[in-house]
Design a protein around this nucleic acid. Structure first.
Length: 274
DNA sequence: CGATTCCCCTGATAGC
DNA sequence: TGCTATCAGGGGAATC
């Protein structure tokens, strides 16, 4: 499950290795991996372009191209963007590839096919780019507890559901939502708009700390996530509740439990999280 | 506007 | 051992 830390890790790795490279050839092996506009237009749009810059917005990786157009990648659940030499043996679930001008290629490898590629020209032509609909970046300088409070104020859903909603806050997925709520000692089912100021402050501190630590560990590999070199992250060893049931809570020793919140597997300590 | 439901996908896993 | 049913889940669209 590539979330903010995994995408950040990928973007940092790619920034040094593909910036300044030209896309010689794009190939789409499964048409619906292109979310916009369509497979043919995507190929036409990116072929021949120079990659100027790579950045991240939420869980999207954004590639600025030299004609002012934009290529974006969302890895969905099981997608990895692998940077390989073109001559290397192919990976198992490659849905699209971008051959670069230095003998390397980017492969979108995605078993479950929830990943998506996007391309848009300098003018969006009425299409709203999905990464512009996102809430604030949790690690940005202008994100603070007041902003968080305001983002949650009109939300009556469970706090975990609100954290997973990308229009509320960008980049948090199932793993880091659970880790954040554990660290903040907030029960995932609490209505989002009923947290006290102190709890919102704890939530704010926790999410920033959890996300920073995960970036520091190059992300979490839970089943399928791989970095651009095809290697696992390290952060899974540091998870405190996600996938840890029925281990004892590091804080109080009570067995970690798994429940379902908003149709998502949810891991928590029922004693610490109130 | 927010909340809810359905849908897309298929490898991995549990159950028989 | 081998088959089948179920699960996992990010996000978009449709609906209430």
């Amino acid at each position: 499950m590539p979330e903010l830390p995994e995408v950040e890790t990928m973007v940092r790795d790619l920034a040094t290795r593909v910036s300044g490279r030209r896309i010689r050839e794009a190939t789409v092996h499964w048409d619906r991996i292109v979310g916009h506009p369509d497979a043919n237009s995507f190929v036409e749009g990116v072929e021949g372009r120079l990659i100027q810059q790579v950045s991240r917005r939420g869980k999207f990786a954004i590639f600025d191209l030299d004609d002012g157009s934009t290529l974006a990648v969302h890895r969905g659940m099981t997608g990895s963007l692998l940077l390989r030499r073109s001559i290397e043996p192919d990976d198992r679930f490659v849905r699209a590839r971008l051959r670069l001008d230095d003998g390397s290629e980017l492969r979108l490898d995605d078993a479950r096919k929830f990943g998506r590629l996007f391309w848009t020209g300098p003018e969006a032509n009425g299409w709203q780019r999905p990464w512009t609909r996102l809430g604030p970046e949790p690690l940005s300088d202008d994100f603070n507890p007041g902003v968080l409070k305001e983002r949650l104020a009109a939300r009556r859903v469970a706090i975990k559901t609100a954290l997973l909603n990308q229009t509320v806050i960008a980049g948090i997925g199932n793993i880091y939502a659970d880790e954040t709520l554990f660290l903040a000692r907030v029960h995932p089912r609490r209505p989002a708009n009923q947290l006290s100021p102190v709890e919102i402050e704890r939530l704010y501190d926790s999410m920033r700390s959890v996300l920073r630590d995960a970036i520091d560990g190059r992300g979490t590999t839970f089943s399928t996530y791989r970095d651009v070199n095809g290697r696992s992250g390290n952060h899974q060893q540091r998870l405190l509740v996600f996938g840890r049931e029925p281990d004892p809570c590091v804080r109080c020793g009570t067995a970690i439990e798994r429940i379902v919140v908003g149709a998502r597997g949810t891991h928590l300590c029922i004693r610490c999280q109130v």
